[in-house]
């Protein structure tokens, strides 16, 4: 149980680091949204799962209820984050920002 928790914790922090790094490194809004919207979601999901495991380690009614609340946060993130990401990327397209493409290639949507 503990080992799973530490692995999830490490993975979550790794994903957060990767997402932040991508936020800085990538060339345009669209590809940065990949990082901000989803690597971060993955990171927060695994971190919250680690917290859930830590919480129900001492197993009784009060801890179980708090654990279920933590799962509620996780579930909300799971629903809300892609919706927010989609809203942002739709706004990008409607605002007329052209997506960055590699030199010498044109993509025609």
């Amino acid at each position: 149980m503990d080992i799973v928790m530490y692995v999830l914790l490490g993975l979550g922090l790794l994903f957060f680091t990767g997402g932040t790094l991508g936020l800085i490194r990538l060339p345009d809004v669209y590809s940065r949204l990949h990082m901000a919207g989803k690597i971060d979601t993955m990171g927060s999901i695994s971190l919250i799962a680690a917290l859930f495991l830590h919480e129900i380690e001492t197993f009784d009614m009060a801890h179980l209820l708090v654990g279920l609340k933590i799962l509620l946060v996780l579930f909300f993130q799971f629903l809300a984050s892609p919706t927010a990401c989609h809203a942002m990327v739709n706004a990008c397209l409607r605002a007329g920002l052209a997506p960055w493409v590699k030199d010498g290639q044109r993509s025609d949507p």
């Binding site: 990949h34 919207g37 989803k38 979601t41 993955m42 990327v89 739709n90 397209l93």
Partner: peptide, 10 residues
């Protein structure tokens, strides 16, 4: 959108 690498734009 949740699967990394792809975002639904519209």
């Amino acid at each position: 959108t949740l699967t990394p690498g792809t975002i639904t734009v519209s």
